[in-house]
Write a protein that binds this DNA or RNA. Structure first.
Lengths: 182, 182
DNA sequence: GTCGTTTCGGAATATTCGTTCCAAATATTG
DNA sequence: CAATATTTGGAACGAATATTCCGAAACGAC
């Protein structure tokens, strides 16, 4: 997983992957069919480990504002781990690889939608009627989180990224709790 | 430019590039030194043409809310041109390529900072004291725009992306005009 | 210990890529 | 027209890639 994370899909050679997994070439091709299969497995593990801790913040039991603040703090943390490449395995490596392969593009969409649905569900629990729909606000939160990941990849520090996240959490919370427009 | 846009940095073969530019291999290597030089030239042209129209919306002469709405409308438009790959040459192709090369990583940072400074300048013209700093809000707007680009790459329609942008424009405008916290 | 099965390491293959080179074609200049 | 410079198309090169293959080593069961 870390090899793909650091170097991206194309950048990770099978040579690197055998060294990192401990498995040798033959076993690797036996376990997954090809490099793409291994990559998808890495994405799955990334989602189950790293992203799960991010998403878990949404069920933190606090108010919407508290949960969103915790969410973006987790995003900021994740954005600066694996510093050498920076960013998110999905928003960077998978988003890149999506350009060449329909399977990977579908995977990217699946992962994006999954996150947005989680956010939407959390928002729906707190939404007052009127204002933007939970779906739109969930898309906004998810887009912001992904933009933060990209920004970290371009060299922003945890603090800079975190400031953005805190602002997003506050603005969206206010929008939900006191919608201003029809 | 379009070849890199559609296929990304690695995905674009020199073969494709000669066909697209009309120039042949030799002339191409004479004009720029190598593939990376040509790519940087493509990024420059992309910034001077496509991004310039996006950034110009910020000097539209309207209120902050109107200008930001126009800004995100331009972002949404850009996110769905070159449909085959989708997204933004900088947020997708350059952000990807940044993983392998320090020069490209610096270029990504330069481009990101440039956009944020433009946004910050526009916000500063309208900011009431208190609340989040124009720099942070500019980072938020830029991150959102980049997230929208990524989302379009994963298959979202212009309308879905636009809804996110409209929400972001409204929320930030309200935050600037009537800051709620200290 | 010996056989059968599974793992291992690395050589071999075929393809693709960026880049260089060269000779023919074309344009430019006197 | 002749001489020289520039551009062109494509072959050639070297490095890197994903994938396949095969003999050897390791291991477990009896």
């Amino acid at each position: 997983m870390h090899v793909f994370w650091r170097r991206g899909y194309d950048g990770a050679s099978v040579e690197d992957l055998t060294r990192a997994t401990g498995l040798n070439r033959s076993s690797l091709y036996a376990a997954w069919d090809d490099k793409r299969g291994l990559f998808l497995a890495a994405v799955e593990r990334y989602a189950r480990t790293r992203l799960a801790t991010v998403m878990a913040t949404l069920e933190g039991g606090g108010s919407l504002g508290e949960d969103l603040a915790a969410f973006f703090e987790a995003v900021a943390d994740l954005s600066v781990t694996e510093r050498e490449a920076g960013g998110c395995l999905i928003s960077c490596a998978l988003a890149d690889a999506a350009g060449k392969d329909a399977t990977l593009r579908n995977e990217l969409q699946r992962r994006f939608v999954a996150m947005e649905l989680r956010l939407e569900a959390r928002l729906a629990r707190a939404a007052a009627p009127g204002g933007d729909s939970p779906a739109t606000l969930a898309g906004l939160l998810a887009s912001t989180a992904r933009g933060m990941m990209l920004r970290a990849r371009a060299g922003a520090s945890r603090e800079e990224v975190l400031a953005i996240g805190r602002a997003a959490a506050r603005l969206v919370t206010e929008a939900v709790e006191r919608p201003s427009k029809t």
